[in-house]
Design a protein around this nucleic acid. Structure first.
Lengths: 218, 218
DNA sequence: ATATATCTAGGGGTATTCCCCCAATAAAAT
DNA sequence: ATTTTATTGGGGGAATACCCCTAGATATAT
């Protein structure tokens, strides 16, 4: 005889949690033992009661899903994690899987797939939505490409170059930048030249676009 | 005796639709008559069957929630729209309300509020989540500010100017743009000058930044 | 330790942008 | 109907950006 799978639902969208609740309550082998609306609550809950599996939203307020994942894996190793998210974002997927999540499904997966995912992960295996699998594949391809070909790859921009770049985007001219940073006009020109080379831009317009698109100033 | 409210649920996240389904099926006065996972399906559905209310996700694939809203209001005036979204984004809220939605709730609202919202909107009134009301207030404050001070306001950019702007951002020089568009170099300069004036930019760098930040090419 | 990258700065020149002035035609808004 | 905006184009000039070259001092990584 199988035991019931004790599930903790962690998502800040009440309506969503309600929905999952409604879906799971019809299943005899699954029991929702708690619901949390932010990261810290998950940890608090697990300190008091046990759960076999956490249905964990990647994008939680207060504490990131990835942070929660880390802690759960370290302190509550008996509890599995099934990540769940709106977004099939490469960064989310790879990061949370690297921090101990056993599965990743999207919020646009149906009732049946949700149940399959819960039972699979609880059984000690991993489960990914079809779309997520593709994303993971893409990610692997990319990391291979990035190391081979040099397209789309932007070398590290130095501290000083960043300062110059920031001022360029704020519409400073080369002269103004030189005064602002107390360096020669020629030095600023040199930095600009390096920036164009590194970003593979043909001119300032491209430099600004590439900077914003690739968030080079973060 | 009251009739049942016929609700059509339109959201691309299956799991979410399942959840709403589960919530609504317990209510005697509400009946879910259909579910759609993209914009065009909503229109198709309404052509065949009727619905009193559409629970419409603002961010739908294929066709934007706002587009759907427009069409429903024009062609199916008997059908009310209750917009629903993950995001309490000012732009989403104001836009869809300007196109005929009778209510706007967030996905983090609870079961009870969802039911209240549906019944309120069906009754011919409007309903907004508390958070959304605040956003609307903010928006009103802003538009007042914007009409007084001239900051952040960008005049409409013409068709030809957009073409030029697009090429600027793609790193074309004035000469190249002239060849591409089969016009004189002087004409392109004239357009560039207008673009700088309209965006209040000092140079190309600022023009590109402002264009991207304000999504002027959409 | 030796190589690589960074920050600094110059000379000299070309290309490009930006500014002022102007103006005709066509379309769109009031 | 009249005004405003869009689109087109020009002359001329100042400011800025971009390119080539070199090069020393310093820091960082292998």
């Amino acid at each position: 005889m199988e035991e019931t799978i004790k599930v903790l639902v962690a998502d800040d969208h009440t309506m969503f949690v309600d929905g999952i609740d409604s879906i799971l309550k019809d299943e005899r082998d699954i029991e929702v033992v708690g619901r949390c609306y932010d990261g810290p609550s998950v940890i608090e809950f697990l300190k008091k009661e046990s759960a076999d599996l956490v249905l964990l939203d990647v994008n939680l307020p207060d504490m990131n899903g990835i942070e929660v994942c880390k802690i759960v894996n370290k302190d509550f190793s008996g509890t599995k994690i099934l990540a769940i998210s709106m977004f099939n974002e490469e960064s989310f997927v790879t990061e949370i899987l690297n921090h101990g999540a056993e599965g990743y499904i999207l919020k646009n997966t149906g009732r049946e797939e949700l149940l399959t995912a819960i039972r699979t992960v609880n059984g000690g295996k991993t489960y990914f939505s079809k779309d997520v699998t593709q994303t993971i594949m893409k990610s692997l391809m990319k990391s291979r490409k990035a190391s081979n070909s040099s397209k789309g790859f932007i070398p590290k921009i130095s501290r000083r170059e960043k300062e110059v770049l920031k001022l360029i985007i704020e519409e400073f001219t080369t002269q103004e930048i030189a005064k602002e940073l107390f360096i020669s006009l020629k030095t600023v020109e040199s930095h600009r030249s390096s920036l164009l080379a590194k970003t593979n831009a043909r001119n300032t317009a491209g430099l600004v676009r590439i900077t914003i698109e690739n968030k080079l100033l973060d």
